[in-house]
């Protein structure tokens, strides 16, 4: 209904092989792939390239568009800044030295390789996670996690959270818009009042949203009681593992093992 709700939705509807895979297999393979990336040694360029090939291939089979995964894969990039210091942290052949305030930093070749490897590992992992989200409806993901032994209570909480994420984000946006509508800014600045005053307004909004959410949870609880809820959160079990799921799972395992071997040759 509102614009940003769609901006939140990462699922790309489709009928591809990947879409129809059992969500459990998808979760397991994604995690396995990320673990494999993390285990690849620094500078395992060939294995990195192969892993990216796997992602591209999966993207093509899933029919989500190569561009989609690629475009969204830079979400984690700002964090690379935290790893910049790895360049100066690993002993190796010195490349250059930088004097920055109290720091006397020496860049090394091993450090540079470490840094680039970290960024690539992260970039590959994020793309696989994007593919998982793009081809799996969130409720199916929840079913998968339930089967993978995530506590029932947590699954229930997360399911409610997912349902009301959109409703409450809408409410937050309305509050923000109302604030904007009332704060007539004469110039492009930081807004009126002192920082304390502005923080207080924001805090009041958070408090108001808290109360509305609390009261909503009361009404939801009533609606649940009205439909026979007694404290147990029952769900049906809609997923069955098929042979094809096992096959793809086994293939994916072999592939990650292969990547590990390639990465260490």
């Amino acid at each position: 209904m509102s614009i940003h709700v769609n901006a939140f939705d990462r699922f790309r509807a489709g009928e591809s092989l990947i879409h129809r895979l059992d969500p459990r297999i998808k979760v397991v393979v994604t995690v396995l792939f990320i673990v494999s990336n993390v285990l690849l040694p620094d500078g395992a360029w060939l294995a990195f390239a192969l892993a990216w090939g796997v992602i591209l291939l999966t993207g093509v089979v899933a029919d989500v568009g190569v561009g989609y995964t690629f475009k969204r894969s830079f979400v984690a990039l700002p964090f690379a800044l935290a790893a910049v210091t790895a360049i100066f942290a690993i002993p190796g052949r010195p490349l250059a030295s930088v004097h920055l305030g109290p720091w006397d930093l020496v860049a090394t070749d091993a450090g540079l390789i470490r840094f680039v490897s970290i960024v690539i590992r992260s970039w590959l992992s994020v793309q696989m996670a994007i593919l998982l989200t793009a081809t799996t409806q969130f409720p199916d993901l929840m079913h998968a996690l339930r089967h993978l032994r995530m506590p029932r209570l947590l699954v229930a909480i997360v399911s409610f959270m997912y349902r009301y994420l959109f409703v409450l984000s809408d409410e937050a946006m309305r509050l923000l818009r109302a604030r904007e509508a009332r704060s007539a800014r004469l110039t492009e600045g930081d807004g009126g009042g002192s920082i304390l005053w502005r923080a207080k307004i924001a805090g009041n909004m958070a408090g108001q949203l808290f109360l509305r959410s609390y009261e909503r949870s009361d009404r939801i609880y009533n609606a649940m009681l009205a439909r026979g809820y007694t404290g147990q959160h029952l769900t049906l079990n809609p997923h069955e593992m098929r042979n094809c799921d096992w096959l793809i799972g086994a293939l994916a395992v072999m592939l990650t093992v292969f990547l590990q071997v390639v990465g260490r040759l």
Binding site: P139, S159, R163, V167, R219, I220, M224
Partner: peptide, 14 residues
Amino acid sequence: LVFQNPDDQLFSPT
């Protein structure tokens, strides 16, 4: 019993 606000009545993801 059908409550006024469907966002309270429909509390499941699907």
